[in-house]
Design a protein around this nucleic acid. Sequence first.
DNA 1: GTGACTTAGG
DNA 2: CCTAAGTCAC
Lengths: 258, 258
Amino acid sequence: MKIATYNVNGINGRLPVLLRWLEEAQPDIVCLQELKAPQERFPITAINQAGYQAIWKGQKSWNGVAILAKDREIIEVQRSLPGDDDDVQSRYIEAIIDQIVICCFYVPNGNPYPGEKFDYKLAWIKRLQKRSQQFIDMELPAILIGDFNIIPNAEDVYKPERWENDALYRKEVRKAYRELIRKGWIDSIRNLFPEEKIYTFWDYLYKAYERNAGIRLDHILLSPLLKSRLKSGGVDKYVRGWEKSSDHAPVWIELNKK
Amino acid sequence: MKIATYNVNGINGRLPVLLRWLEEAQPDIVCLQELKAPQERFPITAINQAGYQAIWKGQKSWNGVAILAKDREIIEVQRSLPGDDDDVQSRYIEAIIDQIVICCFYVPNGNPYPGEKFDYKLAWIKRLQKRSQQFIDMELPAILIGDFNIIPNAEDVYKPERWENDALYRKEVRKAYRELIRKGWIDSIRNLFPEEKIYTFWDYLYKAYERNAGIRLDHILLSPLLKSRLKSGGVDKYVRGWEKSSDHAPVWIELNKK
DNA sequence: GTGACTTAGG
DNA sequence: CCTAAGTCAC
């Protein structure tokens, strides 16, 4: 089973690119972030025609997340991240597919640091830690997947010294990521490729992709129960080179059958 | 010699369509309106690559006119319509090509009627009448060509009764058009096709093109000296059906050699 | 640099 | 409906 995450940066403007990638990559489960579309403007017809069921949580202009699945039932569990009823941003959706809990999310960017937005990011991650710990405690097969807006380590950014005070790399958020790992979550891509330079995002500005000035932001974390099923994975970097591409590339793993 | 007019409704957004049409239609002289680009953003490189020389008068956001010519010298004569030095709108450009005076323009829309904008339109047309009369008086071969924003007659609109109080069809502007004809200008398309229903514009709204709910706004008027050289003409209506087309279609004539 | 939104003009 | 342009967020 192939499971992927892709920050599309606008589901409607990105539709041709998304459909082309779905056709070529044939993922079974896809988590999307940054739909940038209100609930009623999600292109469900085109997604269905491509062979996928979907659940999604839209929002006008910003954020928005979705889970797509091919030939599989999607059981929606949550449409927001528990822990703050006043949070109106559409950044989290959770479902059970094939008996695995899929937590698809888009962590707040958090810039500028310091400031309110950074505080919101830290608070959001705390809620995510809390929610995710429940799956660990219950010993459920679960996946944390999406745009974490966290660069986990120095080897995940082309020029770490430039990023010290960026909310994507601040020590507080790296610490939160390490905390997840300490609790048992497995960074699947880093597990498969312990030494390689792997990026998932290249800024639109300054020819970042051509210079490979990238960062690793999009992650797929497996709960301990799933570790033994991890078969392969990768970043579809070439998609970032397509016309009218997102600034992120799709990231995917394959799990062996239970 | 093939001479055409095309209101492109945004030269940069329309560039692929324009280049495709130039390639297919192979006009010798092309008058463009509604460039909607400042002087420095006219895509002269692409136009040159397509084989055309050009002169143009740009304006930020609105209006803007250009004259293109293939393998012919363009002698620029005017960059604005004489008669009002305070008029800052880029609606008129005049050149001599192959010993013919080419007056390329974009008459003000004039809506809503009544109002200041309608008054500006009438005043603008008066200046055009004055300028054009000079060519008649001097017995020069000349062409008035562009988007007149005038529906000359009831047969030039799909539903005339709906348009009585629209600035494109108000009796004042139709009278001004008749006045040009009375002075000797020849409506080349109507001369070639006295009885046919011919439109050059279909609104983007309400599926106007699919319903053929069109109007005739773009005209090519010949000074008396050129009447005998009129060989053929037409509206490239199919261009309006292309993806990302303008709301106008190109209009063209062919002149016999002198 | 890019997307979504808003506004103005048609 | 469609364009250009200005705004905001990333």
